Amino acid sequence: MEYPMICFNGGRPNPDGTFSDRTRRGMISVIIHEVGHNFFPMIINSDERQWTWMDEGLNTFCQYLTEQEFEEDYKSRRGPPYKIIDYMKGEKNFISPIMTNSESIFQFGNNAYGKPATALNILRESVMGRELFDYAFREYAQRWAFKHPSPADFFRSMEDASSFDLDWFWRGWFFTNDHVDLSINEVNVLTGEDLKNKFKKVPDAFKDFINDETYYYEMTFENIGGLVMPIFLEFEFEDGSKVEQRIPAEIWRMTGDKVSKVFTFEKKAVSISLDPKFETADVDVENNYWPKKMVKSKFQEFEELRTKK
């Protein structure tokens, strides 16, 4: 355990023994973090000087999980996707890939702590699922306890234990400084009748699949930021109901930076949202809606809160 840190890091109560909620959380978080170092890198003994993220990043991820278990709505400093957006959309000349040697990186805290923790959180919550991720992560820790794993050992263990091909994920999040910015470029809405009129001669084999009352949504997406991610959609219909569609990242495999897909529903959609739950750390949500809608800036949100007080 990093004993000096648990002794000297904040937070500290006031002389009269009182403390703010921020100080309280600071104290709890630093204890969780430093105790976590019993495991990363003391037992799973990675090379902190070469790959700081294998120590601090994995430990910060475990810290985030612990904080959320410790208290409902705990305000974690790192881990949630939205917390890393400002860093990832910054000037690329000052953003190093996570896999850069620790002595050569910019913005040490974001690079070695925040981004790896966020990446693993997204991998757990939105790509693999909690049960499978937890099994694979535990398997990695058990395999490499009292040994000296490298990044390749971590990547390989996670894939081997889960049977998931995660090459695309490691490449984007760990080997590049790309960011997430997926966009809804175009939506063409057609009914079954429209299709029949568009294609005058419909092959008999397809006639049974074309329903006059079905709505067909041909959507085109673009990967502007370069970092490959799954496509998460929410369709809202005229009757107020909503349906989620989750498309795996493999949809980008053969198409480069643009891809199209058709969705069919028996009801008419009034709006479509991309990444509606803000799961992917998308840096620009203004291009995530059909039809387009205004998105409030942080300043506008702050002003609204200030005027309500």
Rank of each mutant, 00 (worst) to 15 (best):
T176P: 14
T255F: 13
N223A: 08
E236M: 10
T18C: 11
G109D: 04
K298Q: 10
M42D: 11
T307C: 01
P4A: 12
D16W: 08
G57Y: 02
F164P: 00
Y113A: 10
N59D: 01
S241M: 05
F137L: 08
Q68D: 03
R77V: 08
R77Y: 06
I105Q: 11
S271H: 03
D16Y: 08
V259H: 09
G26Y: 04
F108R: 14
P149R: 04
D208L: 07
I251H: 11
I32V: 15
K196T: 02
H179P: 00
K207T: 06
T60E: 12
T66L: 12
L195P: 04
I85T: 08
G10K: 05
K196Y: 01
V285E: 10
I224V: 15
D134G: 06
T191I: 09
N121D: 05
K207H: 00
F235C: 07
I122G: 13
S271Y: 01
S162L: 07
N9I: 01
W144K: 09
T100N: 11
R253Q: 15
D86W: 00
F206Y: 09
I85S: 01
P97M: 05
E250R: 15
T264M: 12
L132H: 07
T176N: 14
D212M: 02
F19T: 01
K89M: 13
F199N: 03
T18M: 11
S162D: 03
P41V: 03
E279G: 02
E103M: 11
E286Y: 01
N121I: 00
